[in-house]
Every structure is written in C-alpha cells, then in structure tokens.
Write a protein that binds this DNA or RNA. Sequence first.
RNA 1: GCCGGGGUGGGGUAGCUUGGUCAUCCUAAGGGACUGUGGAUCCCUCGACCCGGGUUCAAAUCCCGGUCCCGGCCCCA
Length: 423
Amino acid sequence: MMERPRGTRDFLPAEMARRRETERAMRRTALEFGYGEVQTPTFEQTDLFVAKSGEAIVEEIYVFEDKGGRSLSLRPELTAAVMRLYSTSLTHAPKPVRVFYMGPYFRYERPQKGRYREFFQFGAELIGTPQPEGDAEIIALAVRSIEAAGMEDLEVRVGHVGALRALLGSLGVPAEMAAKAFPLIDKGDIEGLRGLLMDKVEYSSIELIEDYVSTTGDIAVVEGAIASLARFPEVTEALERLKAALEQLDAYEGIGYEVDLGIARGLDYYMGVVFEVDWQGLGAEKQVCGGGAYELGQLFGLDNVPATGFAIGLDRVDIAVSMSSQDGPVREGALVVPMDRDGEVMHLAVAAAEALRSSGIRTELEVMRRGTGKALKGADARLFRWAIIIGSDEVAKGKVAVKDLDSGEQRLVSLDELCDLGI
RNA sequence: GCCGGGGUGGGGUAGCUUGGUCAUCCUAAGGGACUGUGGAUCCCUCGACCCGGGUUCAAAUCCCGGUCCCGGCCCCA
C-alpha cells in the first residue's frame, strides 16, 4: 500500500472544518487590525532562503532542481518572501505596510506531535514603523488571533534580543562566541553557557549575564535592569525601547505577559523586541507562536526598513482547539428522501433540495434508493435536523412532508414555505 | 541525525512472553426482517496480521533490515 510521505497528513472533513474555522477566526482578526492578505509562491529560489538564514538552512529544507537546472526549495517560512514582496512591490505604499498570510510550509525535520514536514502557519508583518507602538500591535494581534481560535491559558513572554546582544558585546564576548551562546540562552542552559564563556570572559561578567538572562517578571524588572546596567548605554537604550513597547501593550485589555530577558530566538536577524507564546498542553512542542522585530531590508538592497512580525503554528493551535473544545452534537441540515423513483417524485425531491439550499440550509439528497425506515434511521444517526419525505401523495398535493427529527413532528408544506425552516 | 516504545479489517481491540484450531470482540459501513416513517432488536455481508528477508515441518507470534507513527533529544513554528 502506498503510504503518505513521512511527516505529512490527510485531513478528513471533520478536521478540515475545525481547521477552517480557526483560519477564519484568525483571518478576520487580522483584517480587523487593518492587515491585508498576501500570498507568495510555495517554492522559491534556494538562494532566497540561504541569503536569509545561511547555508546551513539547506540541511533543513526540501531542495530540488527543476528541469531547467535551477535550484529551488519548498519554503520553510515566509518572512523572506514577504520582504522580497515588500522590496519589489510595496516600497512606495503608504507606511506602515500591514500584511498577513496563511498557508503550508515545509521543513525536513523529524516529525513529532505538533511538528510535521508539511505544516501550516498564519503570520503577519508590520513594516515601516520603528516605534514601540508597532511592537505592541504585533504582539496584540498575535495574542488576539490565537484567542479568536478559541485557545485559553496562553503564556506570553516578551524580551529584547538587541539588549541581550548589546550586553554580551559590552562585556567583551566575541561575536562568534555570542552566536554560540544564543541557543544556550534560548534553551535556558545556564550550565552550558557558563562552560562556553568560562575561559574567555571574567567571572563577574558571567555572573552578570547569567543573572540577566534569568530575569523574568513584570515591567518592573525592566526598570530594575535599566537602573542596574546604567553603565552600558546601548543596553539601557534597548531596554527603554522594550519598556515603551510594554507600556503600550498594557493598553490592550486583558493581554497578560511576562518579561523574559533570556529570550534569544534562534535566528540572528531578530534585532529588537521579541516574544513567544506557549501553551503547556502541547508537551515538548509547546510554542505556538514566535515573533519580533527584525531587519532584513539589506538583503534586498533596502536600508533601515524596520519590520516586526510573527508566525503562529496552526497545527499546534488545532491540536489545542481539538483538545479543549467538546461541543455536543448539533442537529442541523436536511435530508430529502424520495419514497420511490417515479419521475415526478424525483423531480419534486430535487426541487425541494434546491429550495432549501437556496435559503442556506445544508441539504443532502438520498441517492441510495433506500427504504424510508433505513433512510430515516440514517438521517437520525447522521444528526440531520429535518427529513423531507416525498412520495406520490405529496406529489398529488403539490407539497412535501417535513419531519423535525428533534421533536418528531411532521407537517405538509409547500416549497415556498420550506425556506422558513432556517430561521 | 540520536535514544526509546509501537504498527492486527475504516476506527478501537484480543492473541505475541510459552510459534500450530476457519485470527477474538466492539464499532462503522452495505443489505434484509419492515413493499410510506427514525433512535430498538435480530440476521446476513464486507473487511486486517506495515513491507522484505531469515529460522522452522509450521511465524501475527522468534531474529535481522526497511518503513511509518508516538514519546524524548537536536533544531525550530
């Protein structure tokens, strides 16, 4: 038997309905915030991703050569393509530019729960404003979108990689070593961090760094850090920016967050305020969203294009939604049951089905030529709300029999009256 | 890429340690008892040992390889 490729999934109607509902909620949220949807190719020139993330990215993505000998790759993320889109088509659009996107992405990694080789993301980018209001808006949009999908108990952590980078630089950590330190910090591996910095950095500096990256709390810890790190103006400048963004974020009702100065994010194009959203029910792959301010304009020959954005893992959101929602079965829709296959009966049945559909009622036509008993039993099991029964009697009267499967009541109505059912 | 656990009809499972009856049961699906009225009951039908080697008289069961899924690393969303 032919199996699906590793890390891919089929989505059955019930799952697809749930996923579409999530997408609909997020799309609506983004539109309400004034963001416009964009779509870019599913595959791009490999160089685009290499330019953004470095040569090592090739190990993690689906790379292939097309018949013209071009090296192409299935997109592993969308930020690079959006910046290209911006640089080619939106540089002269009114600022800021607000765009969002939704679709499939691909990574060659070991699949796990909430982690697939073909996965789906919803993301947004705010391009053109250097102000903290922008940072706050992007965080708010991310949280509002996830909440709109029905998730609760989100854990939002906000930090600033620019401040972290400046601190390491100010304490004499070489850039090369800082690059190795970032993943350790992001993971919270203090032991590993200490081992890395041991013989290159003074002990007091290591203590300072450990203390800094372990700092969590409310906005007061940012103020505290600003006060205690006054001798590093580059660091405090970045922290002032974080503080301003948080103050702005506080204006959004009900968005709780925790400051976490140890957020490093894996990718080195992040420059400013960064944030992550976790949901504990997901186990090892608990992060549902990541984002922050970045600088990618130079890849496309543009200087100083401030941008901030996020990506939400829709597969993880869907897992969370399916775990928490347990709506009871709802009767809805109609099944039209022709009693015999006489031409007039069949025609009236189709006409009834069409009338119901035109008034927005999900309507199926019984096409198995089943007996009434079986048909009604099936209609009940499949949770239809109405059965429309049509035989020669109905044809003779020019009406159809409508049975409410909830109450068991049945009455004869004309096709015109059928449309009132949906109310 | 690494470590560990798994894979039996569409879904859920018994059997596997101690190889050997037509591979168990539930459910779903199709049909019938019921030729114009549902949730019940009964009957029938359909349908599986992940793939490939090996050991053996005999493999779902033991061994090896592969593959896919799950949990944890790595990495990341």
